[in-house]
Design a protein around this nucleic acid. Sequence first.
DNA 1: ATGTCAATTGACACGGTGTCAAGTCACAGG
DNA 2: CCTGTGACTTGACACCGTGTCAATTGACAT
Lengths: 205, 205
Amino acid sequence: MSSDKVAVEAPETRTRILKAALHLLEASQGRGVRMSDIARRAGISRQALYLHFGTRAALLIATTYYLDELKGVDERLVPSRTARTGLERLDAFIEAWGGYIPEIYGMAKALLAMRDTDAAAAKAWDDRMQDVREGCEAAVGALNRDNMLSPDHSPDQATDILWTMLSVRNWEQLTIECGWPQERYIGTLKSLARRIFVSDGTSNR
Amino acid sequence: MSSDKVAVEAPETRTRILKAALHLLEASQGRGVRMSDIARRAGISRQALYLHFGTRAALLIATTYYLDELKGVDERLVPSRTARTGLERLDAFIEAWGGYIPEIYGMAKALLAMRDTDAAAAKAWDDRMQDVREGCEAAVGALNRDNMLSPDHSPDQATDILWTMLSVRNWEQLTIECGWPQERYIGTLKSLARRIFVSDGTSNR
DNA sequence: ATGTCAATTGACACGGTGTCAAGTCACAGG
DNA sequence: CCTGTGACTTGACACCGTGTCAATTGACAT
């Protein structure tokens, strides 16, 4: 019925490619996914891939944006942004980002692997991480505004520490290498963050 | 004077190779070091490299052993092993390992990059990290024996956390990306570890 | 009929690792 | 002195994965 242009039969090659890339990256934890694999799964020739994305890095980067859109990063951050207290904000942010990591892990891993060799990939990754850092900064700032930030750390340093704690690598090490279930990861990180950043004497539990 | 076999003129090709690899890995932070680069710097042909090390991974792995020997890892760990209290042991271990990281960073980075694609490299890296983990376990155990381990964490979980805190990646993020000087890295990690693992009420400073 | 757009096929360049064959050179022992 | 032997050299080549190019096809629109 409703005709607009092509639709239905050909779901926009470009998005078919992105879906294929996403699926493969997820399935293989980001390791060993070649352009030809993605092409095959998208049902096109390897060369046609390059008609849409000039470079493996470009495809990977486009896939991250697609993924964000798909998973609704922004909405997930609403609880954090609307938190009333600094403590709530810290918890909400850890929950949101910490819960997002496993969903993007394959992508992240692949992009991270290119970071050392490809400048565009490096920039894309660093931009993303900068966003996360801003989230950390905001949480630390909220804590500070509540006079709850431990005097042991300046806001900047606290941001550095929180940002590092919440890195994809740390998630990987704790869940995949140490075998922690996701809930324990989230729970422990929340409690560690409180213990580290929230000043003593004032409610620690 | 003293003649043993060859010596002086030909410093054992093998070690010349290892030295070359080491130098290049250090100088380039482990990125973009090719077999041909190492060969050139060692003053031999690329193919001759393969007479000594069958594989890039094998060469990298041999280089880590050489590096350990050169830098005397074992001696560095003596203060940690001979510490009288758990607290001392924790501090000494953080100082020893945390101080070792910058010296092996280039190597580590190169090995880490191969980890995802090369099984031998993965095993070598994981073995090394397992050693570090044992150091963490020992420190946590000593703390526990002193009844100083915070009841918030089981020894196993505490080990996981300490091990993750002390990862090369975290060192990289804090010093290289956040620009922390090495002393601040060591100092902050020590204080974080105390804050996290040492039970409240009993001496925190 | 013409043009254009998306895609196809096949071929090829490049960079890096790893392999192979043949040759050189020095130094040993009979 | 001749003959190994071992370390090394040179040159060529295979394999992989990325990226490029040229020629072709088929569908759709004008």
